[in-house]
Design a protein around this nucleic acid. Sequence first.
DNA 1: AGGTATAAATAAGTTATACTTATTCCAGTG
DNA 2: CACTGGAATAAGTATAACTTATTTATACCT
Lengths: 300, 300
Amino acid sequence: MHITIRQLQVFEAVARQLSYTRAAEELHLTQPAVSMQIKQLESSVGLSLFEQLGKRVFMTQAGETMLRHAETIMRHLGTAREEMDELKGVDSGRLRIAVASTVNYFATRLLATFTRLHPSVQITLDVTNREALLQKLEDNQPDIVLMGKPPKGLDLDADDFMDNPLIMIARPDHSLSKHRSIALKELTEETFVVRESGSGTRIAMERFFDQKSFAPSATIEMTGNETIKQSVEAGLGLAIVSVHTVELELALERLSRLDIRGMPIMRRWYVGHRRGKRLSPTAQAFRQFVLDEGTRQAVA
Amino acid sequence: MHITIRQLQVFEAVARQLSYTRAAEELHLTQPAVSMQIKQLESSVGLSLFEQLGKRVFMTQAGETMLRHAETIMRHLGTAREEMDELKGVDSGRLRIAVASTVNYFATRLLATFTRLHPSVQITLDVTNREALLQKLEDNQPDIVLMGKPPKGLDLDADDFMDNPLIMIARPDHSLSKHRSIALKELTEETFVVRESGSGTRIAMERFFDQKSFAPSATIEMTGNETIKQSVEAGLGLAIVSVHTVELELALERLSRLDIRGMPIMRRWYVGHRRGKRLSPTAQAFRQFVLDEGTRQAVA
DNA sequence: AGGTATAAATAAGTTATACTTATTCCAGTG
DNA sequence: CACTGGAATAAGTATAACTTATTTATACCT
């Protein structure tokens, strides 16, 4: 014998009305149904909750105690329902976004706009490199990821939404910086500053070099885009980066873009989530927002 | 479709184990039974509570929210059960006692002893005259009443437990105070201080006078035993009171007892409760205590 | 790739539970 | 003393909560 919410509901009505019949009416039930529920509740707690003296129904002390708990339980059920309904809307809840580090340069802009549209959504932004991001996906940590082309192996529902041109950068005073249509083989003697393995940009670069059967004479490996940019600025060597990461530096002419034949390497950004994941309305809204924003940007 | 406690129970187990199968084992159920309960809960809140990605089961945000409420609800159920069990014992709960005003003189002694035996019982003592007491019984306010002989009309389960001798008192310097075996008719010229109507002592007195075909020449009506005693002490007249109310004054010889023929009027005290009332274990214990204490006193 | 193991979903059938209607019982009331 | 209002009881029915058997899906393992 165990307590049920129905019993508590019926009990609460009887306690309020102090009448089985009126409680039954209120609940659109018959009077015997109410009697049964109360009797079951009483037998499962092992005490009388009501006593009938003459015609009137009184609550026992046990009844009063039970009523207090019944009320709080029902109140919690109510608020649970309310909070669930909240979550059904787009303008609430939590949105966990993980982005590959390169994406960060425009993800913040994207998020700023989205936050303005849906101010009460609580957003978590997690910036890591591609490899760590795949691990996080494994743990179902992010709702939505923004990254380069996802690997085939992983079960990811991903759509591309934006160009991601990879370009080669150098110090503005580099000897080739004014040249046009440079062939890769001209760079054989150059040192390349490259991202850590596990980075999407690194993978894209390697594939490009493989295709062109090119192998740089020297590479220096570094973690993070900022570090790479600073190294190139310092004259440590050349680097391949997403154009999004260096817009500012190019404009200020602190870095210059080399006009390599076959470049920019045209890649795309993807918005994705684990296949089978039940996206919350908020997450769906964000996904759609990213896709729309991508095409808008492309047109502009 | 409505939420049930069973659903919350099963949900909580799955949320903790993050596995339907293990939750089923824990609850001694089969796995499909768990699936069904979760599905029903999900459909009644209109949101997925879990999502299955690959083999692993994850909680959704809705699930996390629901879990918080489920836990508090189950905690309340638990404490409700505990408190109910408490009430099943003799040493807890509340005990509402109502006594006729005359009873008060020994009820306090009785309660003191009972409280020492059951210290954590919360006792309410309500002292009123017989008439008001019957009204309170009507409203099921007291658990137990101590009073003189209850009227036949009312549905009261009452047992007598102690003698209640009514005696006549006078000022010690009253002319009859040294006399023996006084006949009522000798008191025709006396003034009587009598309790208000509705008092048990008053009723008993009137019946006694009727039987003896005696009618006092003058009566002064007063409320409460204390007032009566003081009035007699002040020489206002004679009075009939329960011996229990004047023990102290007789011992100190501030009042004296007249030796009237046919007195003391031998009445009894009763411990009672409304017929059909479900006495709590505490109330039952008190009732028994009063009965035992009464006979003990009689023997002593 | 293909086979295997693990875990959840689905289907069908059974038992228990939550209701109903009809009736009885009980206490207060004219 | 019949009458009325209100709860209890009885019997029957629909729904919910389970079971077993089976299917489906995915990770794992050569």
